[in-house]
Design a protein around this nucleic acid. Structure first.
Length: 284
DNA sequence: AAAACAGGCAACCGCTGGCCC
DNA sequence: TGGGCCAGCGGTTGCCTGTTT
């Protein structure tokens, strides 16, 4: 089989017109079989020798984003969402770099997540997705809840999706000496040493008994239950009014932002984005 | 029940940088 | 040194599917 694959004539495929659009099962099988026998790389050659009427680029994309065995699909976990927020704040749209820290996730998937969920959130808040205001909103609303969700999951023996993938022993996918299994507190301690886009190093806050917080969190912001407040003056930044389901926000952005966020909050919470159903479930 | 609409995602496109001759 | 080729990356597009009217 291996020989037959390797010796398969590459001749004659170049004059055939190139196929575009969705891949068929047959094409997937051809590509997978070829790569399993010959390895990744040299995509133009792969396309020709596998008998595919596709460009090398197309083959590479199909393999990396869909066919590769260790690809993980489905909803992003709170951990992953938090990581994306954190890493995007450091590196911007460096999707492939961000993807390195989310084993099994592709840059395309992360990019799609950002564009369809995060940017949509920003639109709803009527602010730029890369603005300080949005950063504030994320820090004050979603990060605390993602962290709580993570805590909740870990205390309930949350099974990391990666663990479900028995084939995946490929820790080379991970950044230096990092495995996804360890992506709890340790991860954020490690992330605190990551370089920012300007080459500097960010300093993350640490919470002794909780998840160490990405630099999204104000270093002085404390999470306590559903409350989120500032260490300096112990002033609550946001939280639920006791005995009610009303939420208030007293973030460090200007007053107009507070109003915008507060107004948008109603819309946001009614919309199941960012796995919002998960994030907000403990409202009830 | 059907048409319109919106969201999500797979795939394509164009640009860039690295490598080799 | 410069030109060609190739792989990789990020932006964009278009299709499919689910939801709403």
């Amino acid at each position: 089989m291996e020989n037959s694959m390797k010796n398969k004539s590459c001749k004659g495929s170049e004059e055939a017109e190139l196929r575009r659009g969705p891949w068929t099962l047959e094409e997937d099988t051809l590509l997978t079989t070829y790569i399993l026998h010959n390895g990744e790389g040299r995509w133009n050659l792969t396309a020709k020798c596998a008998g595919l009427k596709r460009t090398g680029k197309s083959c590479r994309l199909r393999w990396l984003n869909y066919l590769k065995p260790d690809i993980r699909r489905g909803n992003l976990t709170p951990q992953e969402q938090l990581l994306i927020l954190e890493l995007h704040s450091k590196w911007g749209n460096r999707w492939s770099k961000i993807a390195q820290y989310l084993p099994g996730r592709t840059d395309n998937e992360i990019k799609n997540y950002w564009r369809t969920r995060v940017q949509k959130q920003a639109r709803q808040l009527n602010i730029e997705s890369n603005s300080d205001k949005f950063f504030d909103a994320v820090r004050s609303f979603w990060v605390p809840r993602l962290i709580e969700k993570m805590e909740q999951n870990s205390s309930a023996s949350y099974a990391c999706p990666q663990n479900n993938n028995s084939n995946n022993n490929n820790s080379s996918l991970l950044p230096p000496s990092q495995t996804f299994e360890s992506m709890s507190t340790q991860t954020y301690q490690d992330l605190s040493g990551l370089s920012n886009m300007d080459g500097s190093s960010s300093s993350s806050a640490f919470m002794p008994d909780l998840m160490t917080v990405p630099h999204f969190m104000d270093p002085n912001t404390i999470i306590d239950g559903s409350m989120c407040y500032h260490e300096d003056n112990a002033q609550e930044l946001s939280g639920y009014i006791p005995g009610t389901e009303e939420y208030y926000y007293m973030g460090n952005s200007d007053i107009s932002t507070e109003c915008q966020v507060a107004e948008a909050y109603e819309n946001v919470t009614q919309d199941p984005m960012w796995n919002m159903d998960d994030i907000w479930q403990f409202r009830e």
